[in-house]
Every structure is written in structure tokens, then in C-alpha cells.
């Protein structure tokens, strides 16, 4: 009997088989999102702490919806009102939350490694909803689900990720995930956000600072959010970024016909992406949002539901 999988802290330690299993588990929940009545009683009586130490709207709402639609209660902790602001340590805050006897903890935190830090200190399952610049595993899972639905499979996908790669936890999780399925991943962005060390993250990664070259032959294109504060730190003048790296309709024409357009949100129209692309037929942005709920329901069901069907994930708790 292998040790049971308890947490989802990162994509990196998972195998392709484990990821495929998770995506398969999400399928029924995906269908459920189209039903008029979306509530199950599967996790009735269970509660999940949403410990968001960093402001978040969409991920937080997505987890709230996912838990709610499974019948679980959510206990919230928000950055603005959190005891962290009063100087309490993360360890103390998390012990306090655990003492409220939740069945799982979802954590979002601005420090890389925070989810692992918490997982080492509590007995309940921990789901990483984004830790610093490190990983955002549920985002990568929903991206993969979206791509798989549209394309039929993830195998050998040619994908281009655009923007501030080095400061993106979404990019890291996506790179790890897609690489495990043999994807050819092209990273593109301003040189200072594209250090050569990115090549060592996973097999199949290449970098280029030239967007036209990056988009050539891409089957999927993901534009990352450009954080305004990065543009000032000192980064790149906003107009310079738009001129060089905005995903526009003209540029998208270089990709494969019908190439998928993804964006993890929140999206700043007119900066990293042209409105016509964001709203165009190739855009999967809203499907990503819906799939996010399905993926998170599957995870909560597997980790908190205690169904015993987790052996396949046993190595993922590293």
C-alpha cells in the first residue's frame, strides 16, 4: 500500500498519468456546470478554509463556488483583514485556522513556498492556490483541461507563452504540466523577463525575444498578465511592451489556423492582449473560468471527500 496523496502543492512532482487522472476526474464536474441545478451534497458537512493572504478575486470565487457546489462550507480569510496585518506569523495563523477543524485548507500567499510551509504544519489537505512566483497548480490544470477539450489531447502540443515569464507562477505550473505531455513550449517576452535559466525548468522549453518567431506554428498561445508594478521596477515602458509583445490579431495570424488563445486573468485589454483577440473566436478565456470550477471541484472531492481513489496520486505530496 503506497502512502496516500494528501496535498496539491505543485505540478512539478506530478506524473503525466496523475495529471491525466485529475483531468478525467474533472469531466463530470465540467458537465455539471451546464445543469440548471449545480449543487451536490457530496461534501455536505465538510468545511474548507480559504486562506487568501494575497488579494484575489477570481481564484477565490472559483474555489468558493467549487466548494459550495459540492455542498461544503467555506471559511474565508482575506488579506486585507487578516491577522497577518496585525503581525501574526503564518505558522500561528494557520494553527489557529486548523483549530477551527476544517477538512482542508486552500492557500494563496505572496511568498514562494508558503503552501509547502503550511502543508508541513497541518494535518488536513492543503491546496496551493498560488504561492509567490513559484506555482499555481490549479490554474495549470484548468488550462490543460481547456486545451484538451478543444484539441482532443495534450500530447505534443506546440504552445507559446507570452509576457513576464520569470515572475509568473502560472507560467511555471503550465510549463511543468505541458512538458510532461511532450509539449513544445516557446517562451517569449522582454529579455529581462526571460532568463536563460528558464530552459532548465523542464524538457521541451525554448526561448525567444521575437514574438513573430514565437508565434510561428503555435497551436495555442497564452498571454500572461503584465503586472503594472513590474513595468516600473525598472522594467519596460508600457508602450514599448505593447509595441513589441502585445498579442494582436495581426500577430496571431502567424500561429496555426484556429490556434487557441488563453489568458489566466485578470486580463488587461489593450496591454498584453488586443481586445479583438480577447473576444475573438479563438479565445478560450471564459471556458478557462468555467473549467476552473470543475477542476477545483474534482480536487476538493478527491482530497477532502476521502474517497480512497487516490493511490495514483501517491507521489504527488512531495
Amino acid at each position: 500500500m503506497i502512502e496516500r496523496f494528501r496535498h496539491l502543492l505543485a505540478i512539478e512532482p506530478l506524473s503525466a498519468a496523475q495529471i491525466a487522472f485529475l483531468l478525467d476526474e474533472a469531466r463530470p464536474f465540467q458537465q455539471m456546470q451546464t445543469y440548471p441545478l449545480k449543487k451536490l451534497a457530496t461534501l455536505r458537512g465538510k468545511s474548507v478554509v480559504l486562506a487568501f493572504f494575497e488579494p484575489s478575486t477570481r481564484t477565490r470565487i472559483s474555489f468558493t463556488a467549487a466548494a459550495g457546489r459540492l455542498g461544503a462550507d467555506t471559511l474565508g480569510l482575506q488579506a486585507e483583514s487578516s491577522s497577518l496585518k496585525k503581525g501574526e506569523s503564518l505558522a500561528d495563523t494557520i494553527h489557529t485556522l486548523e483549530a477551527m477543524k476544517p477538512d482542508g485548507i486552500v492557500i494563496r500567499h505572496s511568498s514562494s513556498g508558503a503552501a509547502e510551509f503550511v502543508a508541513e504544519r497541518v494535518r488536513v489537505p492543503v491546496i496551493n492556490a498560488g504561492d509567490g512566483l513559484h506555482e499555481h497548480p490549479t490554474q495549470a490544470l484548468l488550462d490543460a483541461l481547456t486545451i484538451r477539450d478543444r484539441r482532443g489531447s495534450l500530447d505534443g502540443l506546440a504552445i507559446t507563452i507570452l509576457g513576464d515569464i520569470v515572475h509568473s507562477r502560472v507560467a511555471r505550473s503550465d510549463i511543468h504540466l505541458l512538458s510532461k505531455f511532450g509539449a513544445r513550449i516557446t517562451l517569449c517576452g522582454p529579455a529581462m523577463w526571460l532568463p536563460r535559466e528558464l530552459d532548465t525548468l523542464a524538457p521541451g522549453v525554448r526561448r525567444t525575444t521575437r514574438i513573430d518567431e514565437a508565434l510561428e506554428g503555435a497551436e495555442a498561445v497564452m498571454a500572461l498578465r503584465v503586472q503594472e508594478e513590474r513595468l516600473h521596477e525598472p522594467g519596460l515602458p508600457r508602450d514599448e511592451y505593447i509595441r513589441q509583445y502585445q498579442l494582436s490579431r495581426a500577430r496571431l495570424a502567424r500561429a496555426c489556423p484556429g490556434a487557441l488563445v488563453l489568458h489566466p486573468g485578470p486580463m488587461i485589454r489593450g496591454l498584453e492582449i488586443e481586445p479583438a483577440v480577447a473576444d475573438g473566436p479563438q479565445s478560450c478565456v471564459l471556458e478557462q473560468v468555467t473549467n476552473g470550477i470543475a477542476v477545483r471541484m474534482a480536487l476538493l472531492y478527491l482530497l477532502i471527500g476521502g474517497t480512497g481513489s487516490l493511490e495514483d496520486l501517491s507521489h504527488a505530496s512531495a
Binding site: E12, S112, G113, D131, G132, L133, H134, E135, V166, R169, R172, P195, E197, L198, T200, L201, E233
Partner: peptide, 18 residues
Amino acid sequence: FAGAVMREGPRSVRLGLA
């Protein structure tokens, strides 16, 4: 550097640490 916490290299990029 600003706010760096370890040596820059493949490891820092992987961990997402400055």
C-alpha cells in the same frame, strides 16, 4: 538586486525565489 533571498541561477528560477 531587490529583495533577493538566494543565489540567482536555475534553482532560484525553479523555486520562484528572487
